[in-house]
Amino acid sequence: MSEQETRVLTAVKKSPLATQQELANQLGMSRESVAGHIMRLTNKGFILGKGYIVPEDNNIVVIGGCNLDICGRAISALRLEDSNLGQISQSPGGVGRNIAENLSRLGQDVSLISAIGQDKSGDWLLEQCRSSGINMDAVIRHPDFGTSTYLALNDPHGQLVAAVSDMAIINTLDGTQLSHKKSLLLSAQTLLIEANLSEACIEWLAQLNCQGSLYADAVSVQKSVRLKPILHRLTGLKVNRDEAKALTGLADASDKELIQALLKAGVKNVLLSLGNEGVIFANHKEQASHGIFTIDAVSDTGAGDALFAGFIHAQLNTWPIAQSLEFASACSAMTLESDSANTPNISPKNIEKWIANK
């Protein structure tokens, strides 16, 4: 940023409703010069569109799915090809949206970029997300696709048995759509994506000259390979073993070999989720692990999203890695104790108390 651009940005922050002529008078510049600086600041992401809206410090932008989650939990051993007695619940979901809600409840300033339908499910999701503190102004309402729906079937212990995901609408998030959100993307101090996005979308993001940290969630074995074009840009990547094997092509590799391969591919920090075995963090300087907390799990939907959100929150607060992994693991465990993909109980104070009682 040039000296003149810095002066204009400072003036805009002090007087965001001022006209270009008023700013010019304050700065001793011509109106045309101020207009040119504002255009360049907007293109760089320091000003967000009309009204001279300046992004918050430490803002996070999440790009990913925003779903209606429907979860059925059997009350006894599942019988395939038959009707099973159980309980059915509805909640907001989607990997990107889940992470965004957790980050918001942890006190972070979060905006979500996603696509939802112009239907009642989309209306309900907007209301639910906004009530949890997520900025939904950048969400696109699509007239031709229904809102994404995720249907999960869990056993009596809350473990996922099968699921059906109808997420065709997320493929409408492409470079053309995201180019309209470029100022928001460039202004993000932290940008988080997930592998439900299309390959074309991820490739477009890989070319974007983002200045902030870039994190990614691999989501699933099938979708994880979509992240290959952007691995070298990633500040952090969350994967499980199978996803790491798919990304690296090392089917028989050890955890250490998988981590080293991802670091060699350019990922700066790897968060390897091991399920019931806990989690491993590694970069080129250090490696650490944390086991799981002993709990009575209700549902594992959203637990990995909470883990990643807790880890990012800890890293943004520059906590030591051992503390970061403990905090992230506690976020995951609290979500496992909930019957939905997000628990409203997640907050820094509640997690601190929860850990102290374990």
Rank of each mutant, 00 (worst) to 15 (best):
M1Q: 08
S2G: 14
T6E: 14
T10D: 15
S15P: 01
S15H: 14
Q20H: 11
Q20N: 13
L27W: 05
G28H: 03
M29W: 07
A35H: 07
H37K: 11
I38R: 12
M39T: 13
L41E: 12
K44F: 01
L48M: 09
K50I: 08
V62K: 05
V62R: 04
D69C: 08
L78S: 12
N84P: 13
I88T: 14
S91Q: 09
A100T: 05
N102I: 10
L103A: 11
G117K: 01
D119K: 01
S131H: 13
N135F: 02
N135H: 05
V139K: 01
V139D: 02
R141L: 14
R141K: 15
F145D: 12
F145K: 13
T147V: 04
S148L: 06
N154G: 00
P156Y: 03
P156M: 00
G158N: 11
L160Q: 14
V164D: 12
S165R: 07
D166F: 10
I169H: 10
L178R: 09
S179R: 09
T190C: 09
L191A: 04
L192K: 01
A195D: 05
N196A: 10
L197G: 06
C201G: 06
C201Q: 03
Q211D: 12
Q211V: 02
G212T: 00
S213H: 11
S213Q: 15
L214S: 09
V219Y: 04
S220C: 02
S220W: 00
K228R: 15
P229R: 04
I230E: 02
L237W: 08
K238G: 05
R241F: 01
A244G: 13
A246L: 03
A253W: 01
A253E: 05
A253S: 09
K256I: 06
I259H: 06
N269V: 00
N269Q: 15
V279C: 15
F281C: 08
F281L: 02
A282Q: 08
N283E: 09
K285F: 05
A288Q: 14
S289W: 01
T294S: 15
A297C: 08
D300A: 11
T301N: 15
T301M: 10
T301P: 09
D305P: 06
A306T: 06
A306S: 15
A306F: 01
F308I: 00
W319Q: 15
I321R: 03
Q323W: 02
A330C: 06
C331H: 08
C331M: 07
A333W: 03
T335W: 02
P344H: 05
K349F: 06
K353Q: 14
I355D: 07
